[in-house]
Structure formats: structure tokens, C-alpha cells
Amino acid sequence: MEQGTVKWFNAEKGSGFIERENGDDVFVHFSAIQGDGFKSLDEGQAVTFDVEEGQRGPQAANVQKA
């Protein structure tokens, strides 16, 4: 798993970007967020995640709040 920080997340659209510790920013969709309840992330929040190849390039998967 990688570690990173939420660069921004739009709760209305359900997507945003995570700033990786090593590498380019990666797209995140709300469906990749693990946990119960409303799936959203806050700017500056620390997260851990896997990276998968999506239709438009790398994207975060199995996102967990650190």
C-alpha cells in the first residue's frame, strides 16, 4: 500500500485526487473509499491506498483513512 495526502475531493461529484509520497497525483473515486457511511475525503487528510490502472490512467483503490 502507498501513503498519501488528499489534494482535493469534491463530495458532490464523488471524486478528487490524492498526492502520492512518491510519484504523480492519483485520481480517487468515492467507490474506492473503504468504510461505512458517507464516503468522502477531506483536503489534507492522510490516507493509505493501492494503485490500479483505470480507464484514464492510474487511480486509487482500497482507500483507507490513515
Rank of each mutant, 00 (worst) to 15 (best):
K39R: 12
T5C: 13
A46K: 14
V47R: 00
R20E: 01
T5A: 05
S15Y: 15
N22V: 10
V51N: 01
G4K: 00
V28S: 03
K65F: 11
S15F: 15
K7C: 08
N22S: 10
E19F: 11
E19R: 15
V47G: 00
K65D: 08
A60R: 00
G16A: 03
D24H: 12
A32D: 08
R20Q: 07
P58I: 08
F30P: 02
E19C: 14
K39N: 06
I18R: 00
F27H: 05
Q59F: 13
G23E: 06
N62G: 03
G14L: 04
F27M: 02
F38C: 11
F9I: 02
E21C: 14
L41A: 01
A61Y: 11
G16V: 02
G14Q: 03
P58H: 07
W8N: 06
D42E: 14
F9C: 07
W8T: 06
Q55M: 12
I33A: 03
Q55H: 13
E53C: 15
V28N: 01
K13W: 10
E21A: 13
G37D: 06
V26H: 02
R20T: 07
G44I: 02
L41N: 01
F27V: 04
S31C: 09
F9G: 02
T48E: 06
A60S: 02
G35L: 08
S40C: 14
K7G: 03
N22E: 09
E19M: 15
D36Q: 12
A60Y: 00
A32N: 07
D50R: 14
V6T: 04
E43R: 15
H29R: 00
E2W: 15
A66P: 08
Q45P: 03
Q45Y: 04
G14A: 01
F30R: 04
Q55W: 13
T5G: 04
E12G: 10
V26A: 02
S40T: 15
V6F: 01
D24Y: 10
W8R: 05
I18E: 03
E53Y: 14
T5M: 10
D36P: 12
L41Q: 00
D42N: 14
A66M: 14
G44C: 10
A60G: 03
D36N: 12
I33F: 04
Q64N: 12
Q55A: 14
K39Q: 08
V28R: 00
G4A: 03
M1W: 11
V6H: 02
S40W: 14
K39P: 06
E21S: 11
E43D: 10
Q59T: 09
E21T: 12
G16N: 00
Q55E: 12
A32S: 09
V63W: 00
S15R: 10
I18S: 01
Q45F: 05
A11E: 07
A11Q: 12
T48R: 10
A32I: 00
S15K: 10
K7Y: 02
D50W: 14
I33T: 04
G16R: 00
S15G: 07
Q55R: 15
E19K: 15
T5E: 04
Q64P: 02
Q3D: 07
S31R: 09
Q64E: 09
G23Y: 05
D42L: 15
P58D: 06
G44K: 06
K13H: 12
S31W: 06
A46V: 13
V51F: 07
Q59Y: 15
I33Y: 01
P58F: 09
V51H: 02
Q55S: 14
T48P: 00
N10D: 13
D36T: 13
G37F: 05
A66H: 12
F27L: 04
F27E: 04
G57F: 07
F49Y: 06
I33V: 07
V63N: 00
L41F: 05
Q59L: 07
G16S: 00
A11M: 09
G54K: 07
F9W: 15
K65V: 14
R56M: 11
S31K: 07
Q3G: 08
E43L: 13
E52D: 07
E52A: 10
G16Q: 00
Q45H: 08
D24K: 13
E53A: 10
F38W: 14
A46S: 11
T48A: 06
E12T: 13
N22P: 05
D36H: 13
T48H: 08
F30C: 08
E52H: 11
E19V: 14
V47W: 01
W8V: 06
G14K: 00
R56E: 08
N62H: 09
A66L: 15
G57Y: 06
Q64M: 11
Q3E: 10
S31Y: 04
G35V: 09
W8K: 06
A11S: 11
S15L: 15
D50Q: 14
M1L: 13
E2Y: 15
Q45M: 11
N10V: 03
F9D: 03
G16M: 02
Q34K: 12
A61Q: 10
G57Q: 03
V51S: 03
I18Y: 00
Q45K: 02
T48Q: 10
S31H: 07
V63H: 01
H29K: 03
I18M: 02
G35W: 10
E52R: 10
G44N: 05
L41M: 05
T48N: 08
A61N: 08
F38P: 09
R56Q: 10
S31T: 12
G54R: 07
E2K: 08
G14W: 00
R20K: 06
A61T: 13
S31D: 03
L41P: 01
S31E: 06
F49K: 00
E12P: 04
A61M: 11
Q55C: 15
Q45E: 14
M1V: 12
Q64L: 09
F49W: 01
E2G: 07
G23Q: 08
F17E: 04
R20I: 06
G37A: 05
D42R: 15
E52C: 15
N10H: 07
S31Q: 07
M1R: 15
A61H: 09
D24I: 12
E19I: 14
F49N: 01
R56Y: 15
G16W: 04
A66Y: 12
G4N: 01
N62Y: 05
V51Q: 04
G16T: 01
G4W: 03
F17D: 03
V47F: 01
M1G: 12
G57E: 02
E21K: 12
Q55G: 11
E12F: 12
S15P: 03
A66I: 15
D50I: 14
E2C: 15
G37T: 06
F49Q: 02
Q55L: 14
N22D: 10
A60I: 02
F9M: 01
G35A: 09
G44V: 01
G23D: 09
K7V: 05
N22M: 09
G14P: 02
G16L: 01
F38M: 07
N22A: 08
H29S: 05
R56V: 07
E12H: 13
F17M: 10
G4S: 00
S40G: 07
K65N: 10
F27D: 02
F9Y: 08
E12R: 13
I33N: 01
F38K: 06
F27Q: 05
D42V: 15
F17N: 01
D36W: 10
D24P: 15
I18G: 00
F17L: 07
D42Y: 15
G16D: 01
E21H: 10
V26T: 01
F17K: 03
G23R: 07
F30E: 04
G54Y: 05
N10L: 04
D25Y: 14
S15T: 14
G57H: 06
D50K: 13
Q55P: 15
G37H: 06
V47T: 03
Q45W: 10
G44Q: 03
I33W: 01
G37I: 06
T5V: 14
G54I: 05
T48D: 04
M1C: 13
E53N: 12
Q64G: 08
F9K: 01
V6S: 02
T5K: 12
W8C: 13
G16E: 02
A66D: 10
V26R: 00
V6E: 02
F17Q: 04
E12V: 12
T48W: 14
G57C: 08
A32F: 03
Q55V: 14
D42M: 15
G23S: 06
E2T: 09
M1S: 14
K13V: 10
S40R: 08
G14H: 00
A11L: 09
G37Y: 06
E21F: 09
L41K: 01
D50P: 00
G57S: 05
K13A: 10
D36V: 11
G54A: 07
K7N: 03
A11Y: 11
E21L: 13
E19Y: 12
A32V: 06
E19G: 10
G4H: 01
F38R: 06
P58L: 10
T5R: 13
Q34D: 08
E12A: 13
Q34L: 13
E21G: 09
D36A: 12
A32M: 05
E12M: 13
Q3I: 13
A46T: 11
L41G: 05
G4D: 00
E12Q: 14
K39A: 06
A11W: 11
D42W: 14
A46I: 13
V51L: 12
E52K: 11
F30Y: 11
G54L: 06
D25C: 14
N62C: 08
P58W: 09
Q34P: 05
D25S: 09
R56D: 08
D24F: 11
K65P: 13
G54D: 07
E19H: 12
F30T: 04
S40K: 09
F49R: 00
L41D: 01
E12S: 13
E53D: 12
V51C: 07
Q59C: 09
